[in-house]
């Protein structure tokens, strides 16, 4: 008898749930409305890049463009005047090389921390991880003057050096946790096969870490690409600027004229992130879960 009653209960719950999803149509409307608000700035950007300056000032900012042709002019103009070309190339280099090196060095460090047994492992890990606990402002002045003194201020090398260093601690955390989960017998087999320690790292461990390494690389690349502060302080010279730095200066100097241009520049600056996101949407989500963010 008790069985029969609970069976009826479940059926009722199921029916209620089905009904409730149908009843949720008002929720869909609300959700659509909220999403619409969210989309407005994107819409605004997309319509503005197709307008000439005159067109923009003449009409309502949200109006549709008259044609698609102005985008070419806008793009070329933004590219040249804002030196987006240099900024793009610089940030690409900083991002790929910087994040790449950082993740590689982090893998090396994580290997040393987990696959070789020595005293006080935790201390050294904490030392590296301490790189993440201070707010950025505390680096600015010392690095600015040190760079000036050594002579690497406003150089590609100087920027690369900093970006690499700052992107090391987090991947070390991630890779260390990941490596702790890999069986250690592989290493022993490799050592018995005659591999030197570095060979074990390079041929055996590294190929098995591609997943977390890619995830952290993408995260750090994005961070470098988005950086404004450190490029402004340590590498403001035109040839060395990051793309966000170029964008900001462009925006600052054209405040009173040409949002169509600055928005085009903003779009150009955002292209890689958008492309990466569309291609690797699943990786992004996976990366957040793997890294525990």
């Amino acid at each position: 008898m008790a069985l029969a009653t609970s069976q009826i209960d479940f059926a009722a719950i199921e029916a209620r749930e089905r009904a409730s999803t149908k009843k949720k149509w008002p929720s869909v409307v609300v959700a659509a409305f909220v999403s619409l608000i969210w989309v407005v700035p994107f819409y605004y950007m997309l319509v503005s890049i197709f307008k000439t300056h005159a067109e923009y000032t003449a009409n309502n900012p949200l109006s549709l463009p008259e044609g698609f042709s102005p985008i070419a002019d806008n793009a070329i103009s933004a590219w040249n005047t804002a030196k987006m070309g240099a900024g793009f190339a610089n940030s690409a280099m900083y991002g790929i090389v910087g994040a790449g090196l950082a993740v590689f060095f982090a893998a090396m460090a994580a290997y040393g921390l987990t696959r070789i047994s020595f005293k006080r492992q935790n201390f050294w890990f904490m030392l590296i991880f301490a790189g993440t606990i201070f707010p950025f402002q505390i680096y600015l002045i010392p690095l600015f003057f040190a760079y000036q003194k050594i002579g690497i201020i406003n150089t590609h090398f100087g920027m690369l050096l900093f970006y690499t260093a700052v992107c090391i601690p987090f991947p070390v955390l991630v890779l260390r946790n990941y490596l702790n989960g890999l069986s250690r017998e592989m290493d022993e087999a490799a050592r018995m096969d005659g591999a030197s320690e570095f060979r074990v790292f390079w041929s055996i461990i590294l190929p098995n870490c591609i997943g977390p390494m890619t995830a952290t690389f993408l995260l750090q690349f994005t961070w470098i690409w988005n950086d404004l502060l450190f490029s402004t302080v340590l590498g403001n010279r035109e040839e060395v600027r990051s793309i966000m730095n170029s964008l900001q200066i462009f925006h600052g100097s054209y405040t009173t004229a040409g949002p169509n241009l600055t928005l085009t520049a903003a779009l150009i600056a955002s292209l890689p992130a958008i492309v990466l996101f569309l291609l690797l949407r699943r990786h992004f989500m996976e990366g957040m879960r793997v890294t525990g963010v």
Binding site: S183, E185, M186, E188, A189, A190, M192, I204, P207, N208
Partner: peptide, 13 residues
């Protein structure tokens, strides 16, 4: 010396 491990320890990649 060459060793055969309990869990084989083959290189997965």
């Amino acid at each position: 010396v060459a060793m055969v491990f309990q869990s084989y320890a083959l290189y997965p990649h």
